[in-house]
Amino acid sequence: MDSGATGRRLRGRLALAAAVLAVSGALTLTATGTAQAAGSSGACAGRVVKTLPFKTGVTRVYQRNGYVCAVTVAKDPGAARTMSVSVQARGNRPVVDSGRYRYHAGPVTVHAGHRCVWIRGAVGRYSVSSGWTLC
């Protein structure tokens, strides 16, 4: 067998393996990192474990397999206004989604494991803060 062809095949397989490892590593960091911002659909995976109402909206908190997700929804959607939501697992920095939105801020997801989390939400000048919870 031609050693040149064998070498090209081996290099091709090594390149493919390296690409697969790079992609799987990126997915692992995204899935198991301390935080990730979820899609913009306004929905979190899991079950609702806490509802934090305030004058201009509500922040809903979901939990699933050690992950905590939160989304802040305006009571009167329509005009774009300042909204935010944040989730902080104890010992980590908060993960925040803030900006001018019409309907909701978030969802924002963190891996909390069995640690307490602090959830904050705001719509306009009104806000809510949970304190350490879900311990």
Results as ranks from 00 to 15, higher is better:
Asp2Gln: 05
Ser3Asp: 14
Ser3Ile: 15
Ser3His: 14
Gly4Cys: 09
Ala5Tyr: 10
Arg8His: 05
Arg11Trp: 09
Leu14Ser: 07
Ala15Gln: 13
Leu16Gln: 09
Leu16Lys: 08
Ala18Leu: 15
Ala19Val: 01
Ala19Gly: 07
Val20Ala: 12
Leu21Asn: 06
Ala22Trp: 07
Ala22Pro: 05
Val23Gln: 04
Gly25Trp: 09
Gly25Val: 09
Ala26Gly: 15
Ala26Cys: 08
Thr28Tyr: 15
Thr28Ala: 15
Thr30Leu: 13
Thr32Arg: 08
Thr32His: 11
Thr32Leu: 15
Thr32Val: 14
Thr32Trp: 10
Thr34Val: 05
Ala35Asn: 02
Ala35Leu: 00
Gln36Glu: 05
Ala38Glu: 01
Gly39Val: 07
Gly42Glu: 01
Gly42Gln: 01
Cys44Trp: 02
Ala45Arg: 04
Arg47Asp: 14
Arg47Val: 14
Arg47Glu: 14
Val48Lys: 13
Val49Asp: 02
Lys50Gln: 14
Lys50Trp: 11
Lys50Asn: 14
Lys50Glu: 12
Thr51Trp: 03
Thr51Asn: 06
Thr51Pro: 01
Leu52Met: 13
Leu52Pro: 07
Pro53Glu: 09
Phe54Asn: 09
Lys55His: 12
Gly57Cys: 12
Thr59Glu: 11
Arg60Asp: 01
Arg60Glu: 08
Val61Arg: 02
Val61Pro: 11
Gln63Thr: 14
Arg64His: 11
Asn65Lys: 08
Gly66Pro: 12
Tyr67Asp: 14
Val68Asp: 09
Val71Gly: 06
Val71Cys: 11
Thr72Pro: 11
Val73Cys: 12
Ala74Thr: 10
Ala74Phe: 13
Lys75Phe: 11
Pro77Gln: 08
Pro77Gly: 06
Pro77Met: 13
Gly78Lys: 11
Ala79Trp: 08
Ala79Leu: 12
Ala80Gln: 14
Arg81His: 12
Thr82Glu: 12
Met83Phe: 09
Ser86Glu: 09
Ser86Trp: 06
Ser86Lys: 08
Val87Lys: 10
Ala89Gln: 05
Arg90Glu: 05
Arg90Tyr: 00
Arg90Asn: 05
Gly91His: 07
Asn92His: 13
Arg93Leu: 11
Pro94Gly: 05
Val96Phe: 02
Ser98Tyr: 04
Tyr101Glu: 05
Tyr101Phe: 15
Arg102Asp: 04
Tyr103Gly: 08
Tyr103Ala: 15
His104Leu: 13
His104Arg: 15
Ala105Phe: 00
Ala105Val: 06
Gly106Asp: 10
Val108Gln: 01
Thr109Gly: 08
Thr109Asp: 07
Val110Lys: 07
Cys116Trp: 03
Trp118Ile: 01
Ile119Gln: 06
Ile119Tyr: 09
Ile119Arg: 04
Arg120Val: 10
Arg120Gly: 06
Gly121Arg: 10
Ala122Ile: 08
Ala122Glu: 08
Val123Lys: 07
Val123Glu: 05
Ser127His: 07
Ser129Trp: 02
Ser130Glu: 03
Gly131Ala: 02
Trp132Ile: 02
Trp132Ser: 00
Leu134Cys: 04
